[in-house]
Nucleic acid binder design. Structure first.
Lengths: 337, 337
DNA sequence: ATTTGCTATTGGAACGATCCAATAAGCATG
DNA sequence: CATGCTTATTGGATCGTTCCAATAGCAAAT
């Protein structure tokens, strides 16, 4: 059980100096090809592994990006996280994925740990009710920070925000439902007072207003369980309700399950549109209509933005909105087959 | 834009030596309380952040655990990852979650990157068809490595394996279906020849054999999409098939959607049992019966095992099987309400 | 033959913590 | 008042890289 070999050991074995080994490590084309191969071979023979801690200490980049997600169990975020990780890996950056589980205190700890580890940048979809702890730390760290999918901190110059154009999406959904003949359309889910709820609802409210239809809002957590509960609530208290736009697909799936239990089938008896268009939408029956946010594409763009910021120092614009579009499927169309 | 303060700066400000600051950092109770507070205050005033790279270089632990998951999009694994991360965070370890996406080459890269970053241990649910690259690296690194949920490498002394007692679970499921009156029971999903497929199928095969019933296996990927396909296949080619055990819940959900599309309802016309018991099982309609693998509990146990290995050097037994149990719900019971 | 201009290589000084051995301070004891 | 003992504090060496300035080797130009 001996210690790991260092560049000194490699240098000794290859019969060169440690500086040369270092140059080989960073792929400098200043070293002669045969010297390079000699060094490479020595490394292989010794089973050399690069010590990033030492390199970092001396001042070079860690090659680490921190990703903090408020709810990694939500497939929408999982997709975002995994896609971002792959896009960054392709450029040689490792991504530390972590889940704050909607807990601001845990989130602050995670961020502190990331900063200690010297991450080069952070991408964060923040938990609510944060207080400034998390973002103040990030500001002090002086590294690129991208705020995605949720805007919690207002300092958009420090923490540029990017998300989807939800308002337009919900307007499109509302117009679609009206065109399908729905007259009493509910908006289900999304916690009250939160920016994203307001956004996702605003297009719906505007379109209903324009069509002279009454709005019906039921706010709450963005989970399947809430959707199931609300199905009972709508059936009991709003029997005339003939359509719904849900805050996200999970709520919509819950609503669908709740309706099915009562023998009502979306598409036939009721028109339903979700939000996010997760993969599952096309894999349930009836298939769920949804406002599609191409999250994989969004993740790749986020990676690109971050890379140019890190490498070229080009700060992205303070706010960006990716377009969304409605994918109409059986759950909101007249026919179920 | 000045550089981060170091312990030297803190020491100067507090009027002590850097050694004292270092002692305060590691919470040594050897320093006088007032000195400690003085140092703490200086840190706060300067906005000092601990430089882990420097500490690591000198030889102390990085406080990092690497987690490599073959398919992080699968909610079963997501739950495992997030729970493990929280359990380790409670003990002061940061967890690097990463997704190999079932790609052995990417997996080897991720592991290499983790080792470079000096992780103290690795937990891995390996991709298939690995070749030895990944595990050879891990063996050389000489750190604790736990192989979970999938056994790919045979060196169980180096990479202790822990998983669930799937065989018993599928036997229980098969007995349950037989007791419910099913006579033509299929096993759907799971890629051919893989250890986990063999295991999850073995209990089913044994019970059917014991009951003198014919087996019917349809192997394939463990996805919703495959489940949907197989619904059509079963309906067309095996109309007498009256029940199924699925390789996992995703396949079962797909099967359910496929059956629903054809107007057949699990519970009423068909008996269905999934595997894993993900949260969603209780949130679809009809609710899905499933062999419950308490993955959160498993994750916490894994964290515990790993911590004692890292801190006390106690190597866990080469193989461990966590118990599973059938949760019977509407999809496999006579009544759907 | 000397100078110039390259390219390829090298020693040494950082980087910011930890940890050991040494020292200083305080205090009771003989 | 010297001695030992404990407790609190400190300087210096060290970890494995990177990077700078210096140097060696060598061909072309003067």
């Amino acid at each position: 059980m001996k210690r790991r070999p260092t560049i000194m050991d490699v240098a000794a074995r290859a019969g060169v100096s440690k500086s040369t080994v270092s140059l080989v490590l960073q792929g400098s084309k200043q070293v002669r090809a045969e010297t390079r191969d000699l060094v490479r071979q020595a490394m292989a023979e010794l089973g050399y592994v690069y010590n990033r801690a030492a390199a970092t200490l001396r001042g070079s980049s860690v090659g680490l990006v921190g990703l903090v997600i408020n709810d990694l169990r939500n497939p929408f975020f999982t997709e975002f996280a995994t896609t971002l990780q792959m896009a960054l890996a392709a450029e040689g950056y490792a991504t530390v994925i972590s889940n704050s589980d909607e807990d601001p205190a845990l989130q602050a700890k995670l961020v502190a740990s990331m900063i200690e580890h010297g991450v080069n940048a952070v991408v964060i979809s923040p938990a609510y009710g944060d207080g400034p702890a998390t973002f103040d730390q990030l500001a002090r760290a002086g590294i690129p920070v991208l705020q995605v999918l949720r805007q919690i901190d207002d300092r958009l110059d420090l923490f540029p925000f990017s998300s989807f154009d939800y308002a337009t999406g919900s307007a499109e959904a509302a117009r679609h439902l009206i065109a399908q003949g729905a007259r009493r359309i509910a908006f289900v889910g999304g916690l009250e007072g939160r920016a994203i709820t307001v956004e996702r609802m605003s297009g719906y409210l505007a379109e209903l207003d324009r069509a002279g239809l009454p709005a019906l809002q039921v706010q709450g957590r963005a989970t399947r369980a809430f959707g199931i509960e609300m199905a009972d609530h709508l059936l009991a208290d709003h029997p005339d309700c003939d359509a719904a736009i849900c805050f996200n697909d999970l709520v919509a799936m819950g609503l669908m399950a709740g309706f099915a239990r009562a023998g009502r089938q979306p598409g036939r008896d009721f028109r339903l549109v979700g939000f996010d268009d997760i993969e599952e939408c096309a894999q349930v029956w009836p298939q769920l209509s949804s406002v599609s946010c191409d999250i994989a594409d969004f993740a790749r763009e986020t990676a690109g933005t971050l890379l140019t910021w890190m490498k070229e120092g080009r700060v992205p614009p303070p706010e960006r909105r990716a377009p969304v579009h409605l994918v109409a499927r059986a759950s909101s169309l007249g026919e179920t087959e």
